[in-house]
Design a binder for these strands. Structure first.
Lengths: 210, 210
DNA sequence: GACATAAGACCGACTGGTTGGTCTGTCTTA
DNA sequence: TAAGACAGACCAACCAGTCGGTCTTATGTC
């Protein structure tokens, strides 16, 4: 027999993914997971807390991975590659969690919304700081506004939750590869500038300004 | 005296944007817009229909603009520029509508969800076909997978609704310019390949290369 | 211009159903 | 035997939607 708390998590994740947080009642959750109101409220203080736990699961993961990438690599090019790769992979691991998160995060009450916002901001700042580091060191195009470029990257990756299917045409690795290619194509400067501190980058870059 | 229906639309848009569709009751809407249950249901068949009308407003706009761009321009480069520009501008005109849409679209019942999906698909297919056209004609890099690249563009633009503020650091025009720059940087092949059928592209990149 | 009339605009008390959450109590297990 | 795991009847609050009624306004008639 499985742990009942995990059953509730899994079942509610499935239901939320299909019908949304507000489209599923606690009664439906306990019914589908073969438990009871008492069982549910023994494990969770409220329906909101269940939602928070769902969020925290994947946010903790993506943040840990990005922070590790930031420490392991020294070049901003390698950092952004590693961050995008792990960021994209999160959608393979936690897609239902993420779908629920973006559809429902606005309804979470204090103190849950506060905690979630903090973790998301740490991740965002990390991505931004890598871009900024690359711009300062000359790896990335200095003329790009940090905020717009950063949000473009977060946007194209976050949007994956809308269309990615595990049994789709492309694997999550292929998506990660293409996305990294796209991002590096608009981040890296013309070829002449890519040589930084005697280091020659072997990243395909195609466009030169006229 | 304003039209009451418009008052309801505007008030509910504001409330939905702050608290979400399910976070606002019809009672709250009629209270905030100084009308009544009767007044509300005189203008709208249901709460769902109100949501549908909100959606339809901006979807109709973005679709019309993109289709016009597709007809007016002949080069895929100009087409994608115009589409991105108008797509980005929709967030300036209809940001509350769009926020509500992405948070709530999942809860809409038939036949509303069907109609919305159709229009969104038409728009998506239009963007994809422009990219494909550019790849066939040699304007765009042939090695990029259409689906992943297309969803990357839709993702980075759609995500604007999460962070764009009208009184923020950058205007919507600046965002559109940077986004166009980013997209063309990863779409266009090396300069040698940009010359197509004797036509030399004069792609107006917003930011000057060094 | 005065009046009758009808149609649409709007009102708000009311309802039937649902929801998140509580509480008392039982069962299991260490 | 005590403590945590779980059960399920119960409740107060709330919600979308209804319905009989009133008010406003445009129009046709004399």
């Amino acid at each position: 027999m499985r742990d009942l708390k995990e059953d509730i998590m899994e079942t509610s994740l499935d239901l939320f993914d299909r019908y949304g947080f507000h489209g599923v009642s606690v009664n439906q959750i306990v019914e589908a997971s073969n438990t009871s109101k008492g069982g549910f409220y023994h494990h969770f203080q409220s329906k909101d807390e269940l939602l928070f736990v769902i969020h925290d699961t994947f946010i903790t993961y993506v943040l840990k991975e990005a922070q590790a990438a930031n420490v392991v690599h020294s070049s901003p090019v390698e950092k952004i590659q590693a961050i995008i790769r792990s960021f994209v992979h999160v959608f393979d691991l936690y897609k239902p969690h993420i779908s629920v998160f973006y559809q429902e995060s606005m309804y979470l009450k204090s103190p849950y919304n506060q905690q979630i916002k903090e973790k998301r901001d740490v991740f965002k700042d990390l991505v931004f700081s890598v871009i900024e580091e690359g711009q300062r060191s000359g790896h990335f195009r200095k003329e790009l506004p940090l905020e717009i470029t950063g949000m473009a990257i977060l946007g194209m990756v976050n949007w994956i939750y809308k269309w990615y299917k595990q049994d789709g045409t492309y694997t999550i690795d292929q998506i990660a590869d293409v996305f990294t290619d796209l991002v590096l194509h608009f981040l890296l400067p013309v070829r002449e500038d890519v040589e930084v501190k005697g280091e020659m980058l072997h990243v395909p870059f195609f466009y030169e300004c006229k």
